[in-house]
């Protein structure tokens, strides 16, 4: 299989922060807002460089979302920043009416998504955000996998006209996407071709999918690994072409099974090419306090869980 050397280790939120700073220099219509989590969101450099285009909303997320919608009238491109939980469930109605239904060009940027937020526990570990956001008409949903991809995605969404939910995280994770790889919204990336089983992964699970594919290769199983960074709109073609070849699929994500990427994939497949599928995702439970690594293991989101799922799904062909 194709090898992806580790280029370093960094948190995806830093990819957002660095991308935002670059955007600030490139596009003077870009403005940023944060609800008292500037450091956590890595928005400090933008704030420092462009104080007139940075807005501290305080711990008042609903107002921040409404203001962002209003700021688009007159041409600004607002990037809001807070934890994924407070970017979605706390302000769902504000996003629904003032942004999605009103078709406003707001970029909702959400850090600390999923279990890997770690020790703060389940109150902060949102695992339902992708589902909530993808259900909204007009909303584009993106979950990049490493620092480089998050930075590229941050730059790309400024050029996309319409509401976007950009989801990233807190822990330091391997960087393996080449810095110069173009980021195309709605276009999946074929990371490694294979013939026996398709693995479709998003976010932090993409690196684990590559690790799993390597493990499977040692067992004589050829896994195809696809990175779906844009959950909506979904790249249907890359998934359908793959399952026509492999006849089975595993989806992997740091999210509930309900509402996640896996559900989008199964919805596509049942309408087109019914295909055996296994889900590597959280199964209808809240998280808890722990280190990111402990949590990923306990809730079944490790490379070994992807390996096991691949072996299981291959028996169902």
């Amino acid at each position: 299989m194709k090898e992806y050397p580790v280029l370093g280790k960094k948190d995806t939120r830093s990819g957002f922060g660095d991308g935002l700073l670059e955007l600030g220099k490139k596009n003077d219509q870009v403005v940023a807002m944060c609800a008292d989590l500037t450091g956590s969101l890595k928005m400090g450099a933008f704030k420092e460089a462009f104080p007139d285009r940075f807005f501290q909303a305080g711990i008042a997320e609903a107002n921040m979302i409404g203001m962002a919608a209003g700021m688009t009238i007159g041409g600004k491109i607002p990037f809001t920043g807070t934890f994924a939980n407070f970017s979605t469930s706390r302000v769902y109605d504000q996003i629904r009416q003032s942004i999605a239904y009103s078709e406003k060009n707001v970029k909702i940027c959400a850090s600390h998504a999923g279990l890997t937020l770690g020790e703060d526990g389940a109150t902060h570990q949102v695992l339902e955000d992708v589902g909530m956001m993808k259900m909204l008409p007009n909303m584009c949903v993106i979950n990049p996998c490493d620092y480089n991809q998050t930075k590229a995605a941050t730059l790309a969404i400024a050029d996309y006209e319409g509401p976007v939910y950009l989801r990233f995280g807190r822990p330091s994770v391997p960087i393996f996407i080449p810095e110069d790889m173009p980021f195309e919204i709605g276009k999946g990336i074929m990371l490694s071709e294979g013939t026996d089983v398709t693995i479709v992964a998003t976010g932090h699970l993409v690196w684990k999918a590559l690790e799993a594919a390597k493990e499977l290769e040692g067992k004589g199983i050829s896994a195809e690994v696809i990175n779906i960074h844009t959950i909506k709109p979904l790249d249907e073609e890359i998934i359908l072409n793959s399952v026509m070849k492999t006849k089975c699929i595993v989806t992997a994500e740091e999210h509930q099974i309900a509402g996640g990427l896996g559900e989008s994939v199964s919805s596509l497949l049942c309408r087109t090419i019914p295909t055996p599928q296994e889900f590597v995702a959280v199964d209808d439970t809240f998280g808890e306090s722990g280190t990111p690594a402990e949590l990923m293991t306990k809730y079944g989101l490790d490379a070994i869980d992807i390996v096991t799922a691949c072996e299981a799904v291959m028996t169902r062909k």
């Binding site: 609903a62 409404g66 203001m67 919608a69 700021m71 007159g74 600004k76 406003k104």
Partner: peptide, 22 residues
């Protein structure tokens, strides 16, 4: 902008007011 679900218009107005200034 759409309105109906209450309480959102003041925030929207503030946002546009800021854009006017910018």
């Amino acid at each position: 902008i759409a309105s109906g679900s209450l309480g959102q218009g003041l925030s929207v107005g503030i946002g546009t007011a800021i854009t006017k200034k910018l």
